[in-house]
Amino acid sequence: MARIVAVLASLLRGLLQAAFIVMLTFFLCRVMPGDVVDVLGLEGGLTVEQQVEMRRSLGLDQSLPRQFADWAGQALHGDFGRSIRFDRPVGEMLATALPVTAKLAALSFCFGIGLALLLAIAATARPSRWLDATIDFVNTWSIAVPTFCAGVAAILVFSIWLGWLPVIGGLLVPVLVIGVDNAGQVVKSLREELREAVMLPHVRTARAKGLSPWRIAFAHVLPAAMPIVLALSGLVLGGLVAGSLTMEVLFALPGLGSLTLNAIHGRDYPIILAAVTLIAVALVAINTIVDMLHRLVDPRLA
């Protein structure tokens, strides 16, 4: 019972978060200086009458809450409207962009978390100056080097100076860059957490039982460090979103990030809104899943 209530509460919170983010985005889009009609007007030389007519047909002359209600009503039925600039259904555009971003994000996430776990576990199992220095380096790298700088540097070095890789296309460089960035963000906390988990009283009990180091590591240390791994993978998501955004632009990948950014420059609200909604729902869903996993791992929280 308590478990169901807790899960429902975290779902409810997630829904509230998503709704709030979407609403915020909607109003930010509407208050931004210069709307789509202005932009098109500048480009295509529309007359004032044409502009007024266009605003009315797009519903831009109505009150903000009204516009939002209309949009939200349609969005709930899966209809995100049509792109104003490209005159294509937004849903369709998202559907083509999503797989690119999803692939990039999933690969980077696996690489990043894998690298962080590898380094942290290795440093706990066989503490060495060298490993700790590596961890410090990766950590500092992710703090100090923006992903797009790393991307630019990679292009400069590998494509231009060494001529190894094609400048554009291929996920290898973006995945490496985002992955190292993600790993750097979590590896230090992971290392600390494992260091502390090894010293926990119940791990000492396990040693007093004479269990083998492997058994201790997997049955006693890792479960204790699991909550932090989960919490950190939630944290990685933020870096993942920012990373995909810049990498897609830099490497001209036709993903969600490029789509959103172009829409922002063109004031193409339906796309901005739909893309942000998609991202927000995905993040909230992942956070909620992480929360539930956390409860599943730890019997005390159930």
Partner: peptide, 16 residues
């Protein structure tokens, strides 16, 4: 040889 510790709450594995 075997050992029993002071604070049984934290000395037992909470996940098992």
């Amino acid at each position: 040889m075997a050992m029993v510790f002071q604070d049984p709450m934290s000395c037992l594995n909470p996940f098992m």
